[in-house]
Measured scan of single mutants.
Amino acid sequence: KKKREHFRQLLDETSAITLTSTWKEVKKIIKEDPRCIKFSSSDRKKQREFEEYIRD
């Protein structure tokens, strides 16, 4: 659960993310961040979390 919170925090702090951002764009920006790396090695899982984040 904590990894998820850190991942969401990373998304919060990434000012380039807007409601129209695509995962492909965002992934390029955040892929080097340790919170992104630690969250999951599964790209699909990160994408799902990102899409949920955008909906919230």
Rank of each mutant, 00 (worst) to 15 (best):
I17R: 00
K3R: 09
T20F: 09
I37R: 07
E13A: 07
V26T: 06
Q9R: 05
R44M: 12
V26C: 06
F50S: 10
D33G: 03
E51Y: 08
D33N: 00
K24Q: 14
R35S: 02
K31V: 07
R44D: 11
I30S: 02
I30C: 05
K45E: 15
T22Q: 10
R48M: 14
K31A: 15
R44Q: 14
I30G: 01
K28E: 15
R44H: 12
K46D: 05
L19P: 14
F50Q: 07
E49P: 01
S21K: 02
S15D: 13
K46F: 01
W23V: 05
Q47N: 11
K31E: 15
L11M: 03
R4I: 02
R48T: 13
D43L: 10
V26F: 01
E25L: 00
I29M: 13
I54L: 13
E49D: 03
I29L: 14
D12G: 05
L19V: 13
W23F: 06
I54K: 14
P34K: 07
Q9Y: 01
I17F: 01
K31M: 13
T14Y: 04
F50I: 01
R35P: 06
L11P: 01
D43C: 01
K45D: 15
E51L: 04
S40Q: 05
S21T: 13
L10G: 05
R35V: 02
K38E: 15
S40P: 04
V26W: 00
R48C: 13
F50H: 06
F39K: 00
L10D: 07
C36L: 01
K2I: 06
Y53R: 00
K2R: 09
I54N: 08
I37V: 12
I54A: 13
R55S: 11
I29P: 09
K24E: 15
S41G: 09
E25I: 00
T22H: 06
E32G: 12
S40T: 07
E25Q: 05
S41P: 11
R35K: 02
I30Y: 00
A16G: 15
T20W: 06
I37D: 11
R55F: 13
R35F: 02
K3I: 09
T20M: 11
I29H: 08
K45G: 10
L10R: 00
D33F: 15
K3F: 09
T20H: 11
K31N: 14
R35L: 00
P34E: 14
S15P: 08
D56G: 08
H6S: 14
F7K: 04
K1G: 15
S42M: 08
E51C: 09
Y53I: 00
E49C: 10
F39L: 02
D33P: 01
T20S: 13
E52T: 12
F7G: 05
T14S: 02
K46Q: 14
F39A: 05
Q9N: 11
